[in-house]
């Protein structure tokens, strides 16, 4: 995967060094002069810079990284973590929504239902996928597949990657809010294990609509938020350009999310982000899914559902005064 064609602002120093390295290698090949010392020096400098940059990303830089156009999307993971994926289409009500994909698959031979929000890789693809912003049909398709999974006793894996549900006229006419609400409610009672991983953008209700799970995990360079940083900036700062401040104020980094009890685990990404090594990123993902699945499958249905209810029931931080009036 060529990750050098698109460079984020904070990655520029890295690109410069990488360019120097390539130039040096070319020179060495053409002139047969030994520059291995210089190459080594640049390489170690590169490694140091990489670990400096990526170990200390600001919340806004993380948002940029998880929106990287080369970042692996749901289908990239599905083809790497499972076999025999049979994509199933449509909500049986109105249409098929390509912003959410789903179907049956085998995870090391074990049947699972995988559902994921899907962005497009290029303009044409993005028009089809609506930039990963689902319409109501997407949520209804997802619930149809989840009910199917429950019927045939298959664990459910959902991959979250959306800026949010689509704010469109048709979406409102067909009640996107209701579609999300029904999913959130009904996921709380599905009698099979559910595992959710936020693999990129976890945009508000549009994300939560497929994310009420026994185990909620997040990839290291992802975010999960009540509102996009731009949206928050527009409302509270009256200026979308304040998005970096909003990203910080919203405290939606994986570490914060774990502290709040909203995610259970953070999945590490390859150095420099998941887009630099799809296979390795998928391997990390699969390992976490498998170990959680093993754990969840040991629970009785009752205990699974009780735990899931309690998990969400306990979310929120408020004060309860001791004296009542």
């Amino acid at each position: 995967m060529d990750h050098t064609t698109y460079t984020l602002e904070f990655e520029k120093p890295l690109r410069e060094l990488e360019k120097q390295l390539i130039a040096l290698q070319q020179v060495s090949e053409e002139t047969k002069v030994d520059v291995s010392q210089e190459i080594k020096a640049i390489e170690s400098k590169l490694e140091l810079l990489k670990s400096n940059i990526y170990s200390d990303l600001s919340p806004w830089q993380r948002v940029q990284l998880c929106r990287h156009p080369k970042r692996p999307y749901s289908l990239d993971y599905i083809e790497r973590i499972s076999t025999d994926f049979e994509e199933l289409h449509g909500d049986r009500r109105f249409k098929d929504d390509p912003a959410i994909v789903g179907g049956t698959a085998l995870l090391d031979g074990e049947p699972v239902m995988i559902i994921g929000q899907q962005k497009g890789r290029n303009t044409k693809d993005n028009l089809k996928r609506n930039f990963g912003c689902p319409n109501p049909e997407g949520y209804r398709k997802a619930m149809r597949l989840m009910k199917m999974a429950e019927k045939f006793n298959m664990p459910i894996i959902t991959l979250v990657d959306t800026p949010g549900a689509y704010p469109g006229i048709g979406a409102e006419e067909r009640h996107v809010a209701e579609a999300i609400a029904v999913n959130i409610r009904d996921m709380s009672t599905l009698k099979v294990p559910i595992i959710t991983i936020v693999i990129g953008e976890g945009g508000s209700g549009g994300a939560l609509g497929i994310a009420v799970a026994d185990s909620v995990m997040i990839l290291e360079n992802s975010y999960y938020s009540v509102i996009s940083p731009e949206g928050c900036a527009a409302i509270l700062w009256k200026d979308r350009a304040a998005a970096p401040q909003a990203a910080k104020a919203l405290k939606f980094s994986p570490t914060n999310l774990k502290e709040f009890g909203v995610v259970d685990d953070i999945i590490s990404e390859p150095a420099g982000g998941a887009h630099r090594d799809y296979d390795l990123a998928a391997k990390h993902l699969k390992n976490e899914i498998k170990s959680n699945l093993t754990r969840l499958k040991k629970l009785s249905t009752k205990s699974l559902l009780d735990k899931r209810y309690k998990k969400f029931r306990n979310m929120g931080i408020f004060e309860e005064l001791t004296e009542t009036n």
Binding site: I184, R185, T189, L208, V226, V262, F312, R313
Partner: peptide, 26 residues
Amino acid sequence: GARMQEGILSLMQLAKTSAALAKLSE
């Protein structure tokens, strides 16, 4: 809508309230 000053915790109130409604419905 959700109170964005409480970040992701306010989003989770959607799940908390809806799950309670599932019980009521049952």
